[in-house]
């Protein structure tokens, strides 16, 4: 779905970085994505592969790092990572005080290019 347009933005950023370093080639791209960024790794890898085929970045490896959802409890301020397993609603009770509502999101929406592995001739 939207993995194709995110892959396009990613490759545009990588190209900008490579232009700053003439004669260099990118071999690995590291991307960090939060659990709420809705990035499907397989679809993203496929999109990057499709967009680089036949070009100078063909065969580039994608390394994805997933950041889990992290919430801060509205009632007691405790920060926690809710379990993946859902017990049905209400969602995400605080492990410290059981408050279920109104937590703020501390981590989970990130979607960024973290680093590149480059080779220079």
């Amino acid at each position: 779905m939207h993995e194709m347009s995110i892959a396009q933005s990613l490759l545009a950023l990588v190209e900008q970085e490579l232009q700053l370093r003439p004669g260099s080639r990118c071999t690995v791209i590291r991307v960090t994505h939060g659990a709420l960024a809705n990035l499907v790794p397989e679809a993203f890898e496929l999109a990057v592969e499709a967009l680089t085929i036949g070009g100078p970045m063909q065969g580039v490896r994608l390394e994805l790092r997933l950041l889990p959802l992290r919430l801060k409890c509205r009632a007691c301020g405790h920060e926690f990572e809710p379990e993946q397993k859902r017990l049905g609603p209400p969602l995400y009770p605080c492990p410290q005080c059981d408050e279920e509502l109104g937590h703020t999101l501390v981590q989970g929406k990130e979607l960024f290019l973290e680093s590149l592995e480059i080779e220079t001739d």
Binding site: I6, F112, L113, S115, E119
Partner: peptide, 12 residues
């Protein structure tokens, strides 16, 4: 060589 970048993919 690893180069750190840290750029939001949705920045454009």
């Amino acid at each position: 060589m690893e180069i750190p970048v840290i750029r939001n993919l949705l920045e454009a």
